[in-house]
Design a binder for these strands. Sequence first.
DNA 1: TTAATTACCGAGTAAATTACTAAGGAACCT
DNA 2: AGGTTCCTTAGTAATTTACTCGGTAATTAA
Lengths: 155, 155
Amino acid sequence: MRLSTKGRYAVTAMLDLALNGQDGPVTLSDISENQGISLSYLEQLFAALRARKLVRGVRGPGGGYFLGRPADEISIADIICAVDEWVEFTRCRGKEDCRGGQRCLTHSLWDDLSRQIYEFLTDITLADLVARGMEKEQTGCGNKKESATLESRAA
Amino acid sequence: MRLSTKGRYAVTAMLDLALNGQDGPVTLSDISENQGISLSYLEQLFAALRARKLVRGVRGPGGGYFLGRPADEISIADIICAVDEWVEFTRCRGKEDCRGGQRCLTHSLWDDLSRQIYEFLTDITLADLVARGMEKEQTGCGNKKESATLESRAA
DNA sequence: TTAATTACCGAGTAAATTACTAAGGAACCT
DNA sequence: AGGTTCCTTAGTAATTTACTCGGTAATTAA
């Protein structure tokens, strides 16, 4: 798994899209202005998102982007994997003698951890995040008092 | 949260240390050879780990590294935060009008998600990973049939 | 006391990634 | 026709990654 600032930009943009795409498409210019991300960088990110069918573009005036699927069918893992190319871990592929199993064991343990994180992010959808925003109905900044977590996991 | 290949190297190295550090210190040369990470890069990583007291170095022949704390008191989040400088998200700090709350809402939602991932990784310790390796007692490579996850969370 | 071994320290660096600029073409609307 | 917006490609400065090199300091063994 790979969770970098690039993936964070993508999640933020998709969240903006989910929040504002209820009535009509959202332009990249809007997202750019809303979230403070450069337009061309958004275009790069959305090229990747479009390739994975996570968004659908509509050209011409009045155009913009829609979510490619309902918000409850788009997970955070989907978004991150779309833009942050999934780097397969340096697994010992039969070659190399695995240092008597030791090295292989370490790799396998990390691999399990990585998969667990992935499954964790798969269980959280855009709809979960939006729903959480709705129920709070907050508009102000800096109210960090609330420490309630998302509680959006199935398990 | 930031989960890059750098953090992955650190987790892998610490896992190696937890597995092999039972009887005597482990040298960086060993880890380097075991895990296929360059010695100098390990030195950089361990400088950061040492600064956070996650490891303790012993110089001279027969020296090497110990874990700085018991393995069950070192979380994956600890390790990642030590080497991957925690990049605080571009939060709207009072300045900027937050686009009528919209931008702020998105930020706050991502912030919650980020915190949730952090708490998730805080609940998994090195000891959990080692224990999982022990109970399987596996030595071979490539047995990807087993899909059981770690089951190491408190919640 | 000398040599070997290891942690420690700092400068430098090629390659990759990040985040962005620039410049246009393609589809769509009025 | 002309403006809007997506879409595409190329290039690029800044940063990060992962590493090399050359040393110093502490400790042990000969």
